[in-house]
Write a protein that binds this DNA or RNA. Structure first.
Lengths: 165, 165
DNA sequence: TTGGAAAGTCAACAAGACTGACATAAAATC
DNA sequence: GATTTTATGTCAGTCTTGTTGACTTTCCAA
């Protein structure tokens, strides 16, 4: 099962194999979002809030515009999310010092608490998947995912901490 | 950069590495759905129609109930999608011969045409990601994704053509 | 023959995306 | 100094896709 994939320049990939990859993405993504979704249901928040909190936590001080282009949504859509997070005191928007039009976004203590809770659940699943698949698989996993991204997404991805790859 | 991942039973995984995996999933999934989404916009269909058409094409004659549990949505939600696909003559529901309560779903010629169009776009991206990442990466990719699935999703995944893994 | 499973339908609703139009403040440019 | 562009926010309306809940029809099986 491994030896007809050993050609180097011309990978021998049947449509069936590629289709299985597609289905793996579909089913895995459901698992990937399941734990945070469970935590968020009951709170007034959803997946959109999770994503905002995640990327603000990851790049403290990011501007609204930057977050917009990371998330790939419209400002109206993001604004609704940010407004509720700010009203509830999870996110803080500080006026830029050099350019005062900009709002720099930060998590409050409370926001960081929620981020941690969501992140821990998601990381636990990712970590256990990594463990189950083994060390070699992890590198391959990220290589394929990276090659699947649109160029702009890849740019954003590359800029987040833990540099290269 | 590769040598602190070489431990075998205890993978040395920093939170940063795991976080990057999470972000890779997020950005890659956007790319993964981008091409079919582009094709579908303008038609009256969306991602939900794509998924239905995909899995009906993959398992011709599947019942509504089975499709329901593969997709993980409610029957009301699926019904709306199936109804429009049937009205437009893309999907056909045949009454079961052994159990006449069941509807067995099939793509018509027209439905298979759309399926092919969507699938080709998505497979092109997947195939090119596989090529870029190389033969070793492909196996790892699927191993990690499979380990990330919920048990029931994994069951469905395993039952689709090209057997084992 | 009756209970229950499979399927379908109607209605109401919510999250999260979208577009379009408009407002404000501040920076940048002419 | 006046004008334009940029960053952000907001109101209003729409679309897709999901949800519950209630109800009907069909029909297999005990």
């Amino acid at each position: 099962m491994a030896d007809h994939q050993t050609g180097e320049s011309l990978l021998f990939l049947t449509d069936e194999q590629v289709r299985k990859g597609i289905e793996a993405m579909f089913f895995a993504y459901r698992g990937f979002t399941a734990d945070p979704d469970r935590i968020l249901e009951g709170m007034d928040y959803g997946r959109a809030h999770h994503r905002a909190v995640h990327f603000i936590g990851r790049s403290p001080g990011t501007t609204v515009n930057n977050l917009l282009s990371i998330l790939g949504v419209t400002k109206q859509s993001l604004n609704r999310v940010l407004r509720s997070l700010m009203e509830d005191g999870l996110v803080e928007a500080r006026v830029g010092r050099v350019d005062r039009r900009e709002r720099h976004l930060h998590l409050t203590e409370k926001g960081a608490g929620l981020e941690r809770q969501l992140s821990e659940a998601q990381r636990a699943r990712m970590r256990s998947a990594y463990r189950a698949a083994g060390p070699g698989a992890v590198a391959g996993f990220r290589q394929v995912l990276e090659a699947m991204m649109d160029p702009e997404a890849k740019r954003h991805y590359g800029r987040l901490k833990e540099g290269g790859s």
